[in-house]
Amino acid sequence: MSVLKVPTMAEMMATGDKPDVLFWVGCSGSFDDRAKKITKAIVKILNKCEVKFAVLGAEESCTGDPAKRAGNEFLFQMQAMMNIQVLDGYEVKKIVTGCPHCFNTLKNEYPGLGGNYEVIHHTQLIQDLFKSGKLTVEGGEFKGKKITFHDPCYLGRANDVYEAPRELIQKLDAEFVEMKRCRAKGLCCGAGGAQMFKEAENGNKEINIERTEEALEKSPNIIATGCPFCNTMMTDGVKNFNKENEVEVLDIAELIANASDL
């Protein structure tokens, strides 16, 4: 495996250089063992296509999204304004992120606090790489596989991004099946709105079980998604049904990276 090239903003700045796009890794992508694999898959794609990017590294900080959804507006705005100072300090214009929660907050809520950037989700960036011909896949690895896609709420309903992830799956030469509740009617995995960090309230079922059940009804080989939280929730769901040996939960970036033998 080739070594990942992950320049930081500070390093680039030191050589007087500037990236075309900042890769906002997010807390999950930086610290969660499962999500780190998604981060690496994104970097592999960026490296392969020679996208000039950089990360903030230790200078990156929580966007404040979970604090805001949990009602702590003070903490959110503190985080946001500090992040904006860092981003503006590096004169960042364009941001790509692997986390729909970071995506939504950076794109929609930072402008009101003075942070104006072009923000895209990694599936949109990968889609652009295909469009410009920088990336191609053979699709062999996924031939005959059945893939379903779980819409992350903060990508789909919250920001109307439904096509990019689907177009990428179509490139894999696999069989794509929609769940009953998909796109604008997609069911949440259960971990938005700061639920990721707390136990669920009492009920008769966990939300991720409900959603995984729905996905498994389609008997897919792969449940694809585009969010580290959704990934965790769906992976747990699959384990709950003891299907982890038959059904993989993968991010779109991982699908593309694997298909391209990266």
């Binding site: 807390c27 992508g29 930086s30 230790a58 700061a194 960090f197």
Partner: peptide, 28 residues
């Protein structure tokens, strides 16, 4: 919920909702 109080404290202290050191962000 107490877990959310912890989450807030983590964001305030470590700039992440979990208890990780900010300097470890690029370890991956």
């Amino acid at each position: 919920p107490s877990e959310l109080a912890t989450m807030n404290t983590n964001i305030e202290n470590n700039q992440a909702p979990w208890q990780f050191s900010p300097s470890d962000r690029l370890n991956w």
